[in-house]
């Protein structure tokens, strides 16, 4: 028990916290980019893109219907076959990216669909390119619809990254187990981790709520 209050333990927990944040922030950010790409792809009309649209559909529907733990294992075995040098943290982050992209594609898609179709048609008949329509007309209006649920999803996903412990990634949940195995009292070990989870979820959740309020209040600018 005396071993708990030491710089070694602090460094160990800090490292675990860092890995949890890394998986969440890097994974969800990449997932947002990939998800936005998927959402846009699914809303194209070009006949030539039909096979890609089907793939996007399978990706979005597939990854949302499989438990995250199963995706973790799937990615682990797939990556170990093609890129054996990738770290466990890298593998877990990839799994987060793939899962987040499927959910965020739906959130981004709902935002895109919230922009009235006639406004898009107006942009079209004014000759604006696909890119100009997206960047100047659609995204500025979709943004406020996308951000709050996207942020909420990210906050929720902090907790799901605990499953990466099953791969052997020493993130927060796993670090508690290791500490307890080393003889630290479970109350202290899990208690510390509980506080750390709450410590990151709470400010993230508040930031998301603030964002939501702000975007709701000022539709312009």
């Amino acid at each position: 028990m005396s071993a708990f209050f030491s710089t070694d333990t602090a460094a160990f927990l800090a490292g675990a916290l860092g890995r949890t944040l890394w998986m969440t922030i890097i994974g969800c950010t990449l997932g947002l980019l990939l998800g936005a790409g998927l959402a846009l792809l699914r809303r194209t009309q070009l006949r030539a893109l039909a096979p890609l649209r089907l793939l996007a559909l399978l990706h979005v529907e597939g990854f949302r219907r499989v438990p995250f733990l199963v995706i973790l294992m799937f990615v682990l075995f797939f990556v170990q076959a093609v890129a054996p040098d990738l770290s466990l943290l890298g593998i877990a982050t990839l799994a987060v990216t793939l899962t987040a992209s499927a959910y965020l594609a739906e959130i981004v898609g709902a935002g895109l669909d919230a922009v009235p179709r006639p406004q898009v048609e107006s942009a079209q008949v004014l000759g604006l390119s696909w890119w100009d329509r997206l960047v100047r007309v659609v995204l500025p209006q979709a943004w406020g619809v996308i951000l709050p649920p996207a942020a909420a999803f990210m906050v929720m996903f902090v907790k799901d990254t605990a499953l990466a412990s099953q791969l052997g990634v020493v993130e927060l949940a796993f670090s508690a187990k290791i500490l307890v195995n080393k003889g630290v009292s479970p109350l202290l070990g899990y208690g510390a981790v509980l506080l750390l989870y709450a410590g990151i979820s709470w400010p993230l959740g508040r930031a998301a709520r603030l964002l939501e309020k702000r975007l709701g209040a000022h539709r312009h600018r």
Partner: peptide, 13 residues
């Protein structure tokens, strides 16, 4: 050019 029943101005500008 065309003008629609519902104006369809870009609301963000």
């Amino acid at each position: 050019g065309i003008v629609f029943q519902q104006y369809n101005l870009f609301q963000n500008m």
